[in-house]
């Protein structure tokens, strides 16, 4: 039962990683950029959620929504201001810019509100827990998991069934061919940043609820781990990010449960190294190119 319990905890934590990983993977899929500022958008999302709950006195869902919308706008602004002018520059130039944006957001937030941590209120939802065959699932975990699952289903729907989703897939596959269809590539890229950042914002609120403590540098480690999750699943592949995130969460929880909780963060990177050695394209990635 201990194993099952840890599995449940892992899935809950993993769904947060998955939400962040989706943004990494979507942005990479469309502009081939590892957006290192993504973890910081997640942090901003956590703070926006916190202020909505404490200052505006709103509940979980309205705060989640405000956080997602704010992060979407932030993501679009970052893309338009920092990345778009570099679209034809070398990849390394864009990557270094992303690191710069990351630092700017982290220390910008510290400048504005200070570096002190905040604690998410614990009474956001009634703290009960359900018993399934001896496995305890807190109402909080259920809410996080439920929110993540709904958002992922929504994302799949957007990407596969809507016009903007189809445009996103077309642009990520072949930008020039997409232009020839009459697709506005700039708007499509903005939409991708908006959706990815909104998911990071949601992850920030979920993370705040789960771990209670938030602070301006909180985006670094979860951001890196979500990046590992995206690579684990195959960067650029949306289902890959979902599975990669869940897997990483479960692995971490099991490692902690086995008594190696100090090794927890290290394990994520061991996983990354193993993937890069044995399956560089990730679990869902194809090593062969399509025929031409």
């Amino acid at each position: 039962m201990e194993f099952l319990q840890q599995l449940v905890n892992g899935v809950s934590l993993g769904s947060i990683y998955a939400l962040i990983a989706l943004g990494y993977t979507m942005v990479y899929g469309i502009v081939k950029l590892i957006n290192f500022a993504h973890g910081d958008i997640f942090m901003v999302g956590a703070f926006i959620g916190f202020y909505s709950i404490t200052i505006l006195d709103l509940g979980f869902f309205p705060s989640l929504l405000i956080s997602m919308v704010t992060c979407a706008i932030l993501g679009v602004l970052i893309e338009r201001i920092a990345y778009k002018p570099l679209r034809n520059a070398t990849r390394i130039a864009a990557l270094i810019t992303a690191i710069g944006v990351s630092l700017l957001i982290e220390y910008g937030v510290i400048y504005v509100r200070g570096a002190q941590p905040e604690a998410y209120p614990g009474d956001l939802i009634p703290a009960t827990s359900l018993d399934f065959l001896g496995v305890k699932v807190s109402s909080q975990s259920l809410l996080i998991l439920g929110t993540s699952v709904v958002l992922m289903i929504l994302l799949q729907f957007i990407v596969h069934k809507t016009k903007i989703g189809k445009a996103m897939r077309a642009v990520s596959h072949d930008m020039d061919a997409a232009r020839l269809m009459g697709i506005n590539v700039n708007n499509t890229i903005s939409a991708t940043f908006a959706i990815g950042s909104a998911l990071a914002g949601a992850a920030g609120v979920a993370f705040g609820m789960y771990y209670t403590k938030i602070e301006p540098l909180m985006g670094i480690i979860p951001g890196l781990k979500a990046f590992v999750a995206a690579v684990l699943g195959g960067i650029g592949i949306i289902p890959g990010a979902m599975v990669g995130g869940l897997l990483l969460g479960v692995i971490e929880s099991l490692v902690s449960a086995a008594g190696f909780s100090l090794w927890r963060d290290g394990v994520a990177f061991v996983v990354l190294i193993l993937i890069l050695i044995f399956r560089p394209a990730g679990l869902f990635g194809k090593n062969v190119r399509e025929k031409v």
């Binding site: 189809k166 897939r169 077309a170 596959h173 072949d174 997409a178 269809m181």
Partner: peptide, 20 residues
Amino acid sequence: GRRVFANMSVEENLELGAYL
């Protein structure tokens, strides 16, 4: 080189042709 959207179905490719 055709440049079809290989990751999408035939039908979706045609839909994109009528994008505007």
